[in-house]
Design a protein around this nucleic acid. Structure first.
Lengths: 130, 130
DNA sequence: TGACTATATAACCGTATAGTTATATTGTCA
DNA sequence: TGACAATATAACTATACGGTTATATAGTCA
């Protein structure tokens, strides 16, 4: 299966996507649409941590951390494990980081393009992937 | 630069990410967190369209379409071009589709895992990429 | 058992925003 | 010019949800 076919295949898949499927995808993005939750995800990237460590590491309040961890776990992005009094969270869906990097790249390109518009002296480098 | 280094590099980049950067990324995800906007993006995947066509194609009201197109354009996801009375929109950042496919794959895996939990008779296939 | 710790939950407030209706703007054509 | 069409915007309502404070739950240890 070549790339062209793959692309076309996904395209028609998306075009025929039902309302429920769209809503699920939107919900997934919604979970990632709050800086506090991203903070928690990033804090967990270096390894699993309990709630107290996350509170200390992020500066968020305990109640807030608990709530957001709940949302992330419900979404399947995090997993949890009890150990005595502690609850230890870990990244369950590592593809999250690919997404973040994707967005970062996209933003980078956008910012570069804007800078280009403001100071048209410099030439565009071939950095834009798309 | 090998993959391990790339990953570690991105990881430390993310760990040191400023609050503003996090907020920008969150905002990016927020734009994609509404089914109506995803609908518009998908409608534009097969080619540029004017507003009327998007209204007809999505079933959303004209005012709503106009508002959501505005948000998507502000975010750099769509681009616009005037042609007489019409305004024609197009996908400006095609990497959006990679993201959608990423989310789809992630959801798929999640659903499969849940199905597995509910009917433990079947074996897990090696489909999970992460 | 009771004191203590880690985490979760409830109740609440404030704000952001999706969608609607009505209207304004902008361009075309007679 | 005026009538019309395509799009954008303003004003409004309703709702969702992030963050806070206070309290509940669950586990540990004396």
């Amino acid at each position: 299966m070549n790339l062209f076919f793959q692309v076309m295949s996904n395209q028609s898949k998306r075009a025929g996507m039902g309302a429920e499927a769209l809503e699920m995808i939107a919900a997934r993005f919604r979970v990632l649409s709050e800086a506090s939750r991203l903070k928690l995800i990033i804090a967990l990237e270096s390894g699993e941590k309990n709630v107290s460590a996350l509170v200390a590491g992020t500066g968020l309040t305990q109640a807030n951390v608990s709530r957001q961890l709940q949302a992330l776990t419900d979404a399947g992005i995090l997993g949890r494990r009890k150990e005595g009094l502690n609850v230890i969270y870990h990244i369950a869906d590592k593809s999250i980081f690919d997404m973040c990097d994707h967005v970062c790249g996209s933003l980078q390109r956008r910012i570069e393009d804007q800078a280009l518009l403001l100071s048209p002296g410099r030439k565009k480098t071939g950095a834009g992937k798309v």
